[in-house]
Amino acid sequence: MSETALHETLPVGSPGHKAGGWFGMMTLIVTEASLFLYLLFSYYYLAFWSRSGFVPSPLPKFDLALPDTAILLLSSVTVWWGERGSRKSSRRQMALGLIATIALGAIFVCIQLVEWTQKPFHFNSSTYSALYFTVTGFHMAHVVAGLIILIALLVWDWLGYFDRRRHAPFAIGAIYWHFVDAIWLVVFFTIYVTPYLGVR
């Protein structure tokens, strides 16, 4: 026999983790992850079927990319720390976490732009070069979108919108940032590591 009268109380709105927006962000992550899957499929397909060498020499160097990766990983830690602040209603911890993440993210973008200018090829030099800039460019666009999200979160935190009960946007934004980080690891592996493993 089903019950119609509720005996347990319900929260109003979606405090905590299971906001509707959280589900929505999951679907966004699924579709964006697929996008990167297809980008990397294109990379591997063109590399495999290229009639002569695909990756031009010199092979990609790690001197900028490796520190850049570390910076991005660190930024995931800072945003995670900031999110812990939301559970304690600590606006200060949230703000510091966001500021650190935004700073690290901005540094990531700058280092990547520097690396772009230092490449011995430009956008249209070859199929590889176009694909290199497209793949890393797509990722960078996602980082920039993430920075905008983080800045919005910072403004909203400053306006006092978040506390231990209601911080769904923070959790959602943080998940997006972790996703962007995880995608970078796969992109980094494909572009920087696989040439040394024979994919060229």
């Binding site: 964006e32 697929s34 996008l35 079927w49 290229s50 002569s52 249209n124 070859s126 590889y128 176009a130």
Partner: peptide
């Protein structure tokens, strides 16, 4: 995303002369 990417790469080929789908270079 597969078709959006395909059309985006096609648009790049058409607008900026990249060579993803042509038979020149590694396209």
């Amino acid at each position: 995303p597969a078709v959006s990417l395909a059309f985006f790469l096609l648009w790049l080929d058409r607008t900026f002369g990249t060579k993803f789908f042509s038979s020149s270079d590694a396209g």
